[in-house]
């Protein structure tokens, strides 16, 4: 499978050498190529941050919106044209901080999109402040005495809300990351993938080595349909489990529930509905 399909020419990548974003970029290209998705069928939606620049290093349709606001347009794009594969991708600050409310409600709506969060436990683009997932004690020029807020637990939150696909990977393991992206993108319904990603410039605590030592793969016996067990696993913060925590394949998607696709499967974007007669009748009914 040719992941070069998604390569762009002469780009000037704004990431630091050694950044975890590179492996996520390559893994995603690989996963899409293996799934046989073509650039014209894919929309990458992102917010703002270093991670959120990823669509610019891709040859595909791009909607690079506002900081924290990738999910609302991603939801709408999928609803207007369900033929497209839609992936919303940003950093942990963007998705879990600025855009936290949208994440909760995206899970409730369950659009058939995938969210990939580059979780480096720090704000990269704004040069090293704490993020919602920074560990307690993490010092920055702003959090001078170290972070004291409890880190946000995206997986536990998503499972508690019965999200339809909840997973975590470590960007240091490319092969697993590719596999996980493939699963998430093929999953019907809302999929959240939290990607642990080292930030070589601003996070000297949660390094490649640290993540290697503080992660492990969920046992083969883990049953992702067991919500309570998944929740229990999600609460483990000493050593982060990796893999698919939770699945609820039975949920209807936002597009299915929206009411506009019940009878007519043609995407809204391509519908040429003749409205005039209906509109006249509606106006007439106001007599």
């Amino acid at each position: 499978m040719n992941s070069q399909l998604f390569d762009t020419d002469n780009i000037d990548i704004a990431w630091c050498p050694g950044c975890g974003n590179f492996s996520i970029l390559n893994a995603l290209k690989q996963a899409l190529a293996e799934l046989g998705i073509k650039p014209e069928e894919l929309v990458l939606v992102s917010g703002i941050g270093q991670a959120a620049k990823i669509p610019h290093y891709f040859k595909t349709h791009v909607f690079n919106g506002l900081h924290g606001r990738a999910l609302p347009p991603a939801t709408a794009i999928k609803a207007v044209n369900p033929d497209l594969t839609v992936i919303a991708e940003s950093g942990d600050g963007d998705m879990y901080g600025e855009g936290g409310n949208h994440l909760l409600h995206a899970i409730r709506r369950n659009p058939d999109i995938t969210t990939i969060v580059h979780n480096n436990m720090v704000y990269g683009l704004t040069k090293g402040q704490a993020s919602p997932t920074s560990q307690i004690g993490f010092r920055t020029p702003v959090q001078v005495k170290g972070v004291f807020e409890n880190p946000f637990n995206p997986l536990a939150m998503a499972i508690s809300m019965d999200a339809s696909f909840v997973a975590r990977v470590f960007a240091g393991d490319i092969a697993q990351t590719v596999e996980m992206f493939k699963k998430a993108i093929s999953h019907k319904g809302y999929a959240l993938v939290d990607v642990l990603q080292p930030c070589v410039s601003y996070n000297k605590v949660n390094t490649y080595q640290w993540f290697k030592e503080h992660t492990y793969y969920l046992e083969d016996s883990h049953d992702p349909l067991d919500r309570l067990k998944a929740f229990e696993k999600a609460l483990e913060m000493e050593k982060f489990p990796l893999g698919v925590f939770y699945l609820n394949p039975s949920k209807k998607t936002f597009e299915e529930n929206s009411g506009v696709y019940q009878e007519n499967k043609i995407p809204l974007s391509r519908r040429k509905t003749e409205r005039k007669e209906k509109l006249k009748a509606l106006i007439h009914s106001k007599k």
């Binding site: 929309v43 919106g65 709408a76 207007v80 506009v260 519908r271």
Partner: peptide, 30 residues
């Protein structure tokens, strides 16, 4: 008018989401 006119109507979680959805919808051809 959802049924008769095939209008997708969504009560957003807040106005920030509402306008970002609307912009996304136009981008995709709505």
């Amino acid at each position: 008018q959802m049924n008769d006119f095939e209008v997708l109507a969504e009560q957003a979680e807040d106005e920030i989401s509402a306008i970002n959805m609307a912009i996304g919808a136009w981008y995709a051809g709505g």
